[in-house]
Design a binder for these strands. Structure first.
Lengths: 226, 226
DNA sequence: CTACTGACAACTGTCAACAGTTTGCCGTAG
DNA sequence: CTACGGCAAACTGTTGACAGTTGTCAGTAG
């Protein structure tokens, strides 16, 4: 067991397992597979036109992303989140993302920050047309913000948390009013970032995410007030 | 596709995939499978006495934990970490763990904090005997500290980061002197926690982890000074 | 009417074989 | 001697079938 060699460069090739992963993730996040629903391997593999092997691999990865929960010998279920779990996820996200923005304020090259600004401009101009995007906290802004920290493991962790949050608040989809507010808050965060004010950006980001959480919680409780 | 039901309670049953996961994780963390080494599915499945199916599932999970890297059609490799990646991991860990300790200072019940203290006493008394534990930052203390935050996703994230760090610094195993220092630093952190001084505990924790990182980096550079 | 028992059906876990891709080797041409 | 091309071995991706477990539902005893 000493077969020395170095990992090759990544040469992406399509694989059924990989494709199924993306399809299933989409089905979960857009509600085709509802929370608490059980995934039947036979039915799903037939629906996707593949065998159970690759499907099981895809499901496995979904479990590691926290989108489904697998119980040995009893099947896998789309995760459903309580209000408490949603709060926990947001708290984690706040810790990660405020740290990311502090790093970005210190180390991010000016150009990348400017790109974020022009991205916001595009979002705003397309806003009048499409009325609103499907999701107020457009993941793009936050994902790009995270990447400015230039810390791959941090980005990875935030991606996972982001996906779970998106699933947890799937029902509270579009909220036109909040989308407008969110854009303004994004601009404030960016302004602090341009000024290289890490603490200020972190503070604005935290309040932004906190109000986003409160909004989600309100919708959640309105849906099931028990 | 609307099969309603609720997720059952967890009823752990042994499964080849699950067992293989733990075996393989152990082999990677203790160096039996060296960094950059390729995992041959056929050889491994024969060595473990199982077929490739469950083995592939176990490998899949290792990949999601960040311990191996899978390249489609080219095999999976035990991850090896550069100094930069190790720093990134520590930075992420610091962000997560300082946040955890702040939460702990605010919300953790007194009893759980006291348990941490008696655990440190045991560690110290067993220290003269075994001379030193295999790993200076004994994962137990940090893992328990994380759990005090009472935020499962946060604990999960820290577990993953901890495993990767442990792999990254696998070579720099025992360091008796540092183990002694680490224990003292743990006591300081705990003292701040007892005083419910979240900021103080966070600061002490950060410097503790920073010196741990510097120690690891020094060992790493000594091993391969290129 | 309720609680237990046993068999059946459905589903997940596992296996062995097949198929497609990658990689290394060998021969040939320049 | 070096560069290119094609063949073959090795390995990963995929499949369909088998095995063991779980959950359900009659049927029966209390």
């Amino acid at each position: 067991m000493s077969e020395q060699s170095r990992p090759p460069k990544l040469g992406r090739v399509a694989t059924y397992a990989g494709q199924s992963l993306e399809v299933l993730r989409g089905m979960i996040l857009d509600g085709t597979l509802a929370p608490a629903e059980r995934l039947n391997e036979v039915h799903l593999s037939q629906a996707l036109g593949i065998s159970r092997g690759p499907l099981r691999e895809a499901i496995q990865r979904l479990a590691s992303e926290g989108l489904v929960e697998a119980v040995p010998h009893r099947g896998v279920y789309v995760r459903s989140f309580s209000a408490r779990e949603l709060s926990d996820l947001y708290e984690l996200r706040i810790a990660l993302e405020t740290h990311a923005v502090r790093l970005a304020a210190r180390y991010a090259p000016q150009q990348r920050i400017d790109e974020l600004g022009s991205m916001l401009d595009e979002t705003e101009s397309s806003m009048g047309v499409h009325a609103t995007s499907a999701y107020p906290e457009d993941p793009d802004f936050h994902a790009r913000l995270a990447r400015l920290a230039a810390n791959p493991p941090l980005v990875e962790a935030l991606t996972d948390v982001g996906r779970r949050i998106r699933l947890a608040r799937a029902r509270s989809a579009h909220q036109p009013r909040r989308a407008r507010t969110a854009l303004d808050e994004h601009r404030e965060i960016l302004a602090a970032l341009v000024a290289r004010d890490g603490e200020g950006a972190a503070a604005k980001l935290e309040s932004h995410l906190t109000s986003s959480l409160n909004n989600a919680l309100a919708v959640l409780r309105a849906a099931e007030p028990d």
